[in-house]
Design a protein around this nucleic acid. Sequence first.
DNA 1: GTCTACCCTTAAACTATCTTAAGCCTATTT
DNA 2: AAATAGGCTTAAGATAGTTTAAGGGTAGAC
Lengths: 193, 193
Amino acid sequence: MSVENLITYFHNYVPLNSKEKEDLRTRVIVKKIKRRQFILQEHDVCRHYSFVVSGCTKMYSIDKNGAEHNIQFAAENEWIMDIGSFHSERKSLLNIEAIEPSVILQIDKPTLIHLYQNHPKFCRIFRVIIENKFIELQNRLLQNISSNAEERYLSFLEQYPHLSNRLPNTQVASYLGITPEFLSVVRKNIAQK
Amino acid sequence: MSVENLITYFHNYVPLNSKEKEDLRTRVIVKKIKRRQFILQEHDVCRHYSFVVSGCTKMYSIDKNGAEHNIQFAAENEWIMDIGSFHSERKSLLNIEAIEPSVILQIDKPTLIHLYQNHPKFCRIFRVIIENKFIELQNRLLQNISSNAEERYLSFLEQYPHLSNRLPNTQVASYLGITPEFLSVVRKNIAQK
DNA sequence: GTCTACCCTTAAACTATCTTAAGCCTATTT
DNA sequence: AAATAGGCTTAAGATAGTTTAAGGGTAGAC
């Protein structure tokens, strides 16, 4: 049962009691997602926090020229959602899509509110989760304003070895904010050193 | 009394009761900061969440060539801290410095823990604060991987009019991830349209 | 099994951004 | 009042990154 993966994950933050586990088991939604299937589409409201049990997903925006820009990947034990749309209940400008066949767990807003109100522990857990996501994002932004493409690529390889093996380079380029052609040049330069 | 500014600020999230206000009044530290004074220096641990009552501050990193890269500004009613260093208690790689003479309020870790343990409301408040900071940062990152310097500058002007008036362009350039000279060119191009 | 769509690479020409250097202006320090 | 440091602009030459186009490889679709 894949909800157990989430319970184990939460346990790494704070141990859960049986009532808390029970609430998760009865309320969390399990979904099997095919490659290229959407978890969230632009113009819809993001209704769930999604936790990836297996597989890999990406969140991206499409610009006025139709180009995709990857904001985030999420593989095993990572969260993915448009948190702005989720809380405001306004239409999202982002897409979330499976890169590999995936199993995800979803928590909708009523469930999240239920968890917060009945088990204050979850407020702490999700505060820490979002703090960690914030730190990660801030580091990435700093990289983007202070480093060139080669440095950003090397740092991506170092920080996400489990992703760089699995992802096509087109996806990595979109994440780094460069074209696939230029990533190819960057890789060639690195190889020649 | 400037702690009242913070109380009013929290009130906009959730009303506080008198015990909660009292705890803030007795525990929050008030500081007057001169222009160019440091609130946090690289190699120190970030020991406080800082709330700007008046004035303006910036957080930046210094790269291997000695260049500064602005990660965040914080003016009236905004928070600034190296949240990674604060929680891990590891040495920060960042600096926080006043751009204008400022008054700030500081919450240290024992106080924050006290607030979380005695008033669960604060866990919710800070979760929402950090969620909002996360959304803002994610939008900025998206801009950085998908837009050129002119688009990023225009969007900065639109989103932070209260800052763009007060900041020297060198600081804005460092925030956008471009050189001051190139920002000058960008501004000229915009003016000529 | 064949086919198609996607992925990766290369190169040439183009555009965006940086570097260096200089000059001017204004606020602050002496 | 003079001196200095910081901030803004301009321009020329250098480097980083994009665009377009083409060719070859490979995995999933039929």
